[in-house]
Design a protein around this nucleic acid. Structure first.
Lengths: 222, 222
DNA sequence: GGGATTTTTCAGCCTGGTTTCAGCTTTGCC
DNA sequence: GGCAAAGCTGAAACCAGGCTGAAAAATCCC
C-alpha cells in the first residue's frame, strides 16, 4: 500500500513516517508543495496524506492541480486546529477526508483504512476473496480448509496487495514498490522468496508466474 | 437494542437518530445533561452515545455520576476532534470508547457493534475474560489458580485496555496513547517493560508478540 | 524530609523476520 | 536437443526489534 506523506514539520514527520510504515504502508515523503506535486504527478499512490500549511506551494494548490489533471487518488487533508475554513476549502478542492492537528495516530490509521476500502470495494469487513480471508486487524489469513496463518509484516503487505489487485499481472518492480517504500533493487530475489512463502499458505496455484512479466493472483480458486 | 443518544446539536441529531434507527437501534434522545442523567438512571440501555459538550451539565459529569452509581452501561463518547484531552478525561471518567467529531456514520456503527459485542460477553460486573478477572475498584487481578495480584496504576490501565480489546493487534503506539495521556515517546521501552510485568501475572502466553506490529491479548487461554 | 513504592531508563542479550546466496529447475527460443 | 535467462528453493547470515534484570529517577505517603 503506497502512501505519499506531505508534511513539512520534521518532528512530526519522523514519528508519523515510522508509524505509517509499521502499519504497513510504503511511505514516500514530500516536505514542500513543489515536491509533493511532482511526486503525485509521477507516481501512483493508494492514498495521500496532505498537510495544507506548506512552504513554496500550499497544499490546497497542490490538491487543485492534481484534481484538475484528473488525478483521483484519495487524499486526507491535515489542517491546523480551529482552521475550519481550511477544511471547507479542502473539501471544495477535492479532499476525501480531513483530520485536525494534533490528532491521534489511531484516528489517522482508521481513516486511511476506511478511505482505502471505500475506494476499492465496500467499506469495512475483512478483505476476502473466494475461499481466502485476510483479517487486517490480526494480520491473519484463513483458508477454505479452515487453516489459519499468522503472517509476518512483509507477507501481509504483499498478500494484501495481491488481494486488492487480483487477476492482474503485477511485475516484481510493482510489487517491490508497494510492499516496500523504495524502488526495486534489481539484483535481489526477495519478491520470489515471499511469493514462495505465500504460495505455501494460499495454495501453490493461486499465484501464477508470468515469466518475464510478473505474477498474477487468481481471484477465484482454479 | 436500546440506545441513548445524548447530543445537543439538533441538526446532527436528526440525521443521526434516523440512521441509528435504521441500523436497528431503539433510540432515546437527550438534548442536555440533566435529561441525559435522568434517562440513564431510570432506564437500562445497551449502549450510550454521549456528546461531551452539553448545556446545563457536561457529559463528563453525567458519565461520572453514572459510574459512581455503578451504572456500567457501555458509553461511547463524542468529542471535538481537536480536543484530545477531553478523551483522556472521558476514559478516566469511565468511557468505553470515543469518536472525534465529525465522524463517519459507518465508524460509529462499527464501534457500537464492537462495544455491544464486548458487553454481551460480560454484562456489567468486573471485567473478566476466561480465567482472568479484573476488579476495577480494587485494581486487583485474580487468576484461575486463585492467585490474586494488586496491580499498580500503569499495570492496571494496560491490562484493562488489553481486556477491552482482546484478539486484536495493539501497536506500542496505540498502547501508549491509551495507557498514558500523551503521545508515544519514540525511544522508550516502557511498554515492553510493562508487557513483561503483566506476563508474569496473566501468564506468559496470554500476550502474544507480533514482531514489528505490536501485541495481541488472547481472549481465550490457549 | 525520608522511606517505600512505582515508573522509567539503560545496557546487554536473544530471537525471529528479512535478505542473501548458491545450486537447482523450468521455460522459451534457436 | 541445447542453451541461456528467469524463476524456485532450502539454508545461512544478518540485523532490527524485543526481552530482561538491575539501577536510577520520580512519585507517593506518612
Amino acid at each position: 500500500m503506497r502512501l505519499l506523506l506531505v508534511e513539512d514539520d520534521t518532528v512530526l514527520v519522523q514519528s508519523l513516517r515510522k508509524s505509517l510504515q509499521q502499519a504497513g504502508y510504503a511511505v514516500d515523503l514530500a516536505e514542500n508543495g513543489i515536491d509533493a506535486e511532482y511526486l503525485g504527478d509521477e507516481n501512483i499512490y493508494d492514498v495521500v496524506v496532505l498537510d495544507l500549511g506548506l512552504p513554496q506551494r500550499s497544499g490546497l494548490e497542490v490538491l487543485r492541480h492534481w484534481r484538475a489533471n484528473n488525478n483521483t487518488t484519495p487524499v486526507i487533508v491535515l489542517t491546523a486546529r480551529d482552521a475550519w475554513h481550511e477544511r471547507v476549502d479542502g473539501f471544495k478542492a477535492g479532499a476525501d477526508d480531513y483530520l485536525g492537528k494534533p490528532f491521534h495516530l489511531e484516528e489517522l490509521l482508521a481513516r486511511l483504512n476506511a478511505i482505502i476500502h471505500r475506494s476499492k470495494q465496500q467499506p469495512g469487513g475483512p478483505l476476502s476473496m473466494g475461499d481466502l480471508t485476510l483479517d487486517e486487524e490480526r494480520q491473519t489469513l484463513t483458508t477454505a480448509d479452515g487453516n489459519s496463518f499468522v503472517l509476518t509484516g512483509t507477507e501481509f503487505r504483499m498478500l494484501r496487495y495481491f488481494l486488492l489487485h487480483p487477476d492482474r499481472i503485477l511485475s516484481k518492480a510493482t510489487l517491490t514498490e508497494h510492499v516496500y517504500d523504495f524502488d526495486a533493487d534489481k539484483d535481489s530475489n526477495v519478491i520470489e522468496v515471499y511469493v514462495k512463502r505465500l504460495r505455501e499458505k494460499v495454495g501453490k496455484d493461486r499465484i501464477v508466474t508470468r515469466r518475464g512479466q510478473g505474477y498474477l493472483f487468481r481471484g477465484k480458486a482454479p
